[in-house]
């Protein structure tokens, strides 16, 4: 019996060595270790053994069983690995074929710039105020200290909705300043982005509808220095820290002193080129200290409070930012254009 067991073991281990699939390994397990298998068949003959032989043969049988079991487990793992290898080979794909891309839409370049500017101001403690586009002239003109003879009131400049000039399409976002100051007392810190309208024919640099971001800060002790600091911070974040700015005296009826802000041309670095028309500077925005008359007009004491305001053209910022040379592209919405952003 001892010989039979060792022969069985040798045969089983030998056959396992050449089993090359999970299936043939399983067949060998059934053949040798199954209920009707060869080891069982041998063990069934144990009854004929002497009491002395039985434990010896029994122990040998257990050893043989575990050896075969271990061999099966080992071979099984090897065969699985081989099979997996074959499968992976068979399943090879061309990873350079195009992916199944879910379509993702594009953000309009003006929204990119608008959102960025909003985030910058939010981080500086501003909130976003909104106001109507079809606006009362009293908010867009009178309360902004725009004199009755100002050219902006011309019918050739502003789109009127009421014959008596009391309602028009706002030509700036500044009326929102007035609306906010009428409702809120200082400290005030708002921006107000939105659509504005001026009677300009459409061309590469003009559009009868465009976008501005208005800004307003009113508090005790606000200075022109603060205005410069704030706008420098904006320019730094939009166009890179260290971008040079230049503040030029200008005139707006609702600010005094007023200034326009230029940034050093980022195409030529101030040397003068086509983009900056040889000036080395690019006009970016208008700003100034809120006119005392405007403050007084909304019930804020100009002797106690001061403030600054600014207005930025979004189209201009967008065109500069992305090198867009024709404003019409922004409103044509050709997907070949939109998909670039």
């Amino acid at each position: 019996m001892q010989e039979k067991l060792t022969a069985l073991r040798d045969a089983a281990l030998g056959e396992l060595q050449i089993a090359d699939s999970a299936k043939s390994v399983e067949e060998l397990r059934v053949k040798y270790l199954g209920k009707k298998g060869e080891l069982t068949a041998i063990l069934k003959q144990m009854g004929g053994l002497s009491a002395e032989e039985r434990p010896v043969i029994g122990a040998l049988a257990n050893t043989v069983r575990s050896e075969i079991e271990n061999a099966i487990a080992a071979r099984s793992a090897e065969v699985d690995a081989i099979e997996l290898e074959h499968r992976l080979k068979a399943e090879r794909i061309d990873v350079t074929l195009p992916g199944k891309t879910p379509r993702v839409g594009h953000k309009h370049p003006m929204s990119i710039v608008l959102d960025e500017a909003k985030d910058i101001f939010i981080s500086m403690g501003f909130t976003v105020a909104e106001g109507p586009e079809v606006e009362l002239s009293v908010y867009d003109f009178d309360k902004l200290n725009i004199p009755p003879n100002h050219t902006v009131r011309e019918w050739s400049d502003t789109f009127y909705v009421a014959e008596d000039e009391s309602v028009h399409l706002r030509c700036q976002t500044s009326p929102v300043q007035v609306r906010v100051m009428e409702k809120q007392s200082p400290p005030i810190r708002i921006i107000s982005p939105g659509r504005v309208y001026r009677k300009d024919e459409v061309d590469a640099t003009h559009s009868p509808m465009f976008h501005q971001i208005e800004g307003l800060v009113v508090d005790r002790g606000i200075t022109l220095g603060d205005l410069k600091g704030t706008l420098n911070a904006l320019v730094g974040k939009l166009y890179g820290t260290g971008t040079k700015t230049r503040f030029r005296p200008h005139h707006f009826p609702f600010t005094e002193p007023s200034c326009e802000v230029d940034v050093e041309c980022f195409v030529c670095g101030g040397k003068g080129c086509r983009v900056c028309k040889g000036e080395g500077w690019i006009e970016l925005l208008g700003s100034g200290m809120v006119h005392p008359k405007v403050l007084a007009g909304v019930g804020i004491d100009p002797d106690e409070y001061s403030g600054f305001a600014f207005g930025i053209g979004v189209e201009r910022m967008t065109m500069l930012r992305f090198g867009i040379d024709d404003m019409r592209l922004l409103f044509e919405n050709d997907t070949r254009f939109l998909s670039q952003f």
Binding site: P102, R103, V104, G105, H106, K107, H108, M110, S111, E133, R195, Y197, P208, M209, L330, F331, N333, T335, L338, S339
Partner: peptide, 9 residues
């Protein structure tokens, strides 16, 4: 999958 447009009011 939709792209943003800006049109005149």
């Amino acid at each position: 999958g939709y792209s943003e447009i800006y049109t005149y009011s």
